[in-house]
Structures are given as structure tokens and as C-alpha cells.
Design a protein around this nucleic acid. Structure first.
Lengths: 252, 252
DNA sequence: AATTTTTGCTTGGTATACCAAATGCAGATA
DNA sequence: TATCTGCATTTGGTATACCAAGCAAAAATT
């Protein structure tokens, strides 16, 4: 072999794909066998959310398939899933690339998510069991207790699980699925905008009102608060984008 | 189902070059490059919506690929798209099957769609140009003029395009895309429930209020009317399902 | 030296070959 | 006759081979 030239980022994945290896023999017969492509999508999605695959990063098919220990066909299947979710962008003759949405795009996403969560709040008042409401309130109390938590990602995960739990309590599979997709696309930017301490405090106030309304099963309150909570997030996100812009400007 | 045009020609001897030349002539100047899988998804989606592929029908991969004149790989890509849209269901070692949602599932879908259209109505008041509003009102007038139209599918298509036009005027790509997906999944059942004449009349009243609010750019009115319009549709759909159930019961 | 052409690697897109699991039918057996 | 078993067929799932397009660096031409 002559001198190989790596044309783009030659970095393989930091995480070995052992878990992905087909282990058909070990599987119990009754367990639902998940498609390999779905598993790949799950792995890549997690990497994207956690920032290990940062926005703008190329995901070449051959390289990635080799790194994951699978062939291109199921990898491609996973990439198509992520593309349909809006997490990556694919164009002919170009490597798939991790999406890097602009502020305008994010604000559009947040608007839709606000409508979805508004509906979720309304439906939850009808469909949530008392036990589910108790658990949601428990999450809220856990957040209050961890408001000083230095591990930002941990705090943020509790935050997100609070929202997820409310949506899940509606028992509306379509709503849950669509919400989850927007959730993924917004994960990173919401994480960045939630690092601010004052944003945390504001969020806690909103969550308090939401939990209160849920306890009283007051549709109007829960729906409105959830909707407005996300619409306010647009302003927080705007700040993140302007800061980022300022940073890149000073770089050059 | 005829053969599809491919974005890259791997020289199949079975394909006459004449057809390729025709395709190239018809092509729009710059943008016609679409993945084959997407085209397949479009074809199959249309067949499903029009009922040529009825709910419950199997879509075996090899057979369908042969019928479309493509290989299994891009066909499978298209099937995965339709699966992510909820139009078909795939399970291991079983042929993909056209989805046949229950009433509960449809009502869940309609709830989400009502939230999406409610948001669309609100955003349209801000984002729609006067020209777009004019066109939307024109669609409404066209519906009024065709309320006696015997070709139900034609009337229904105008009905749907009215909703689509409002959503499109928001210029929110995510909202448009998600709405379109729910639109597809609901197409068939909404078509069935719109055949009733009294349902048509009620729909026209709703549409009138929507168009009026849009002209006045009254967010509250447009948003509320669009949301309620779809929630009322749940009741119409319930009737369709109970009739269908009665029919199948008498069959046996 | 500047510009155009060539070339050769890269990329993703498609077709095909192969495999494992499920399903159904035929034939053997109690 | 009823049932069980095993083979064959059909299904979807995966891996691989091949192809055209794009791009960039090198080379040839002016």
C-alpha cells in the first residue's frame, strides 16, 4: 500500500462497537429482534446529542461502518433514520453531515415543540394517573434539590425527563414519538442555553407552575404554562446564538 | 407500476434508452436529482392514499421491487421512509403491511394534528403574505362552488389543499413537514369521513370562519377555529369506524 | 507563471449475492 | 385418523461488488 491520504477528518469513533456485533445465537428467542439499522441510529443519535459528533462533522459511510463493525447497508439505514429526524443532512456525493441548525431553524422547532407540549399538558390532565403525577412532582423536587448541581449535563437530563414524563403520561403514541424527535433536534441547543444560572431559576418557576396545575388537573394552566415555557426558551436560545456568533467573530 | 427514473444510471440492459432521453427532456433545469428511494416512497405513498394499496395489504419486497423495476435496496429505503411516517408497518420475517389504524390511534393522530394546525393558524396570521391569504380565500370559494361536486376525491383534494396552503404560509419548514406526515396518515380516514354531505356543510362553515379570521389576521380566531375544526373531525371519524364495524359484523 | 486539462481517489447510490428465521406442506409414525 | 417432524420455500436482513459523480491535486499547455 502506498501512502494513504486521509482526505477528511480521519478520527474513528472513540467508542468500540462491541455491543453492536450480531449476537443472534445468544438472543433469547422471544426477545424482539431489533433491526441493526435502528441500533446504529440509536448509537449515532446518542453521540450527536452528547456532542461527541459535533455539528458540522462529516459521517462518511465506509469509515463509520468500519468503525462500528457493520456494513454500509445497515449503517445507511440508520443514517436515513437520523436524516428523517433532522439530526443529519445528506446530499448526493457528499458525506452526511451532522446538522447545525441556525437560530431561525431552532426557533421554528421550538414553536412546534411548544404546540406539542401544550397539547401534552392538556391531555396529561385527563390521562395521567395519580401515580404518574406523583412521579412528575418528584422529578420537580429533585431538580429543586439539584439546582446548584455543578454537573450541568446531569441537571439538564433531569430537566428533560420532567418534560418527557408529562408527555409519556398522555399515552398518545404519536404525540410521544413526534415529541421525541423534536426533543432530539433541540437537545443540544437547549442544553447550551440551560447552562445559565438565571435560566435555571426561571425554568424552575415554570416547572413549579406546571406541576401545580397538573396536581389540580387544570388543563388551561398546564397547557398554557408548558407552551409558554418553551416559547420563552426561544429568547434564551437567541442569547446562545448571539454569543456564539460573537465568539466566532473574535476568532477571525 | 412502471419503472422509475434513477438518479444514476447503472446501465440496465432491460431499460430502453428512449425512455431515459424522455426523462431528461422533462427534467427541470437544475434540481431533479432525487434519491431513488424517495421517489419510490412517493409512488407508494400515493398508492396507499388513493386506496390502490388498501390497509392490511402486504407489500413483499422482491415482488414490489420487480414491479417498480428497481432492486430491493432502494425499495427498502422507500419502505423505511413510509414506516417512519407510520403508513406501513414492518416486522422481521414478515412482509411490510399497509397500516390499518384503529379509531383510538386515529383520534390520537387527530389530536396532534389539531395542535399543529392551531399553531399554523397562529403563525399564518404573522407570516402569510396578502397574496397567500388571497389564494387561500380563493380555495375556499372554489370549495363553496364545488360543494355539490359528485367526484368526492376531487372535492376532498381541494379541502386538503386549503389546509396545506395555510400551513405552507407559515414558512416554518419543520411544521410543514410534520404536518404533511400526519396529513398522509390521516388522509384515508378523513376522506371516508368527508363523504357525508352534512359533514361537508359543517366543514364549509369552519373554513369560512378560518378564512375570515385570516383576512383580519386574528390569531386567536384562526388558531382556535383550526384546532376545533380538527377536534370536531374526531366525531365524524368515530361514525365512520362504527359504520365499518357494523358492516364487517353483518358480513360474518 | 498562469491556466486549463487530466487523472485518480473520494464520496454516496444501486444491484446482487448470501444468510437466517419463519412458515407451510408432505410424509411418516403412533 | 390425527399428529408430529423435517424439508423446502419464502420472507426479510445483511454484506459485498460495482458504478457514476465530484473534487482536488498534479501535470501539461499556453
Amino acid at each position: 500500500m502506498g501512502p494513504l491520504r486521509q482526505c477528511r477528518k480521519p478520527e474513528p469513533f472513540s467508542r468500540p462497537p462491541v455491543a453492536l456485533k450480531q449476537d443472534n445465537m445468544i438472543d433469547l428467542p422471544s426477545l424482539p429482534r431489533q433491526r441493526l439499522g435502528e441500533q446504529i441510529a440509536d448509537v449515532l443519535r446518542e453521540q450527536i446529542l452528547l456532542g461527541q459528533l459535533p455539528p458540522g462533522k462529516n459521517i462518511p459511510e465506509r469509515e463509520t461502518a468500519a468503525a462500528l463493525g457493520v456494513s454500509r447497508t445497515p449503517l445507511r439505514e440508520g443514517l436515513l433514520v437520523l436524516e428523517s429526524e433532522g439530526l443529519i443532512e445528506m446530499s448526493p456525493s457528499k458525506s452526511p453531515v451532522v446538522a447545525n441548525p441556525s437560530f431561525v431553524e431552532v426557533s421554528h422547532l421550538l414553536l412546534v415543540q411548544s404546540a406539542l407540549e401544550g397539547l401534552a399538558g392538556e391531555c396529561a390532565c385527563d390521562a395521567a394517573t395519580q401515580d404518574e403525577i406523583d412521579r412528575i412532582e418528584a422529578k420537580h423536587r429533585m431538580m429543586l434539590a439539584n439546582v446548584e448541581e455543578p454537573d450541568q449535563i446531569k441537571f439538564f437530563q433531569i430537566d428533560m425527563s420532567f418534560h418527557e414524563a408529562i408527555v409519556a403520561s398522555t399515552k398518545n403514541p404519536s404525540l410521544i414519538k413526534t415529541h421525541k424527535q423534536y426533543h432530539s433536534r433541540l437537545w443540544r441547543v437547549r442544553f447550551l442555553s440551560a447552562r445559565d444560572r438565571s435560566a435555571r431559576d426561571k425554568a424552575m418557576i415554570d416547572h413549579g407552575r406546571i406541576a401545580e396545575g397538573l396536581r389540580l388537573r387544570d388543563k388551561e394552566q398546564v397547557s398554557g404554562e408548558m407552551r409558554d415555557h418553551l416559547r420563552r426558551a426561544i429568547d434564551n436560545v437567541r442569547i446562545v446564538f448571539s454569543e456564539e456568533e460573537a465568539a466566532t467573530a473574535s476568532d477571525s
